[in-house]
Amino acid sequence: MALVWDGLRQALGLLAGGDADVFGITLRSLEISGAATCLSLLLGIPLGVALALGRFPGRGLAISLVNTGMGLPPVVVGLFVSILLWRSGPFGFLEWIYTPIAMVLAQLAIAAPIVTGLTLAAIQQIPDRFRLQMRGLGASRGQLLWVLLREARLPMLAAAMAGFGGVISEVGASLMVGGNIRGQTRVLTTATVLAASKGNFDVAIALSVLLLAIMFLVNAALTWIQQRRAP
């Protein structure tokens, strides 16, 4: 029990003292996972909309693949991205392995199916009759899409939250493709794993508290936007 209390006390000291190392790791986590989430929204929203509204051969298979992708184990993603970016691999010439770019790509592979799947579900829950009504009021294709996205904005924000939550808290892929290099690819989760394995529970707890705080703040901000009355 003393281990926990000591750890907590030292963690608070680290956080209060504004440890430069901890600060750098936190910032890097936000940058990498933020970039991966933004890219997953750019990719996942159009894909989700296309799957929800489109009618084309192979659509059923594509939806099944997306649904499977929503539960991809990060280590599996890490393994495949590692193989692709490995020095002797097909994209080895890019020299991205053990760089933040590799981490963004791996996290994108984890978040994109989540965003796509949740967008698909959000658009599909709007009844066909609503689409017909909007066309009956003179909506063009673009205007119809705009109205649909606006109608689905709450579940879409949930998609963004789920995507960000999924990638900032994963460790397997980041460790494998980033290498946990101090000052370069070390993020909150990989740093926590390292600190705990070395018995530095104070640092591990401090990093965990920060991770929880970030997730709380991001979710609180998005929830606030969700709950705000539409103009």
């Binding site: 009759r129 009504q133 009956g136 009021l137 003179g138 109205v147 606006r150 539409a230």
Partner: peptide
């Protein structure tokens, strides 16, 4: 679309958008 904009349709359900 142009011709449709000279008409307006109302259905059994009000099908209102989630706004005011």
């Amino acid at each position: 679309l142009e011709a449709r904009r000279r008409m307006a349709t109302v259905f059994q359900e009000a099908l209102l958008a989630d706004t005011t």
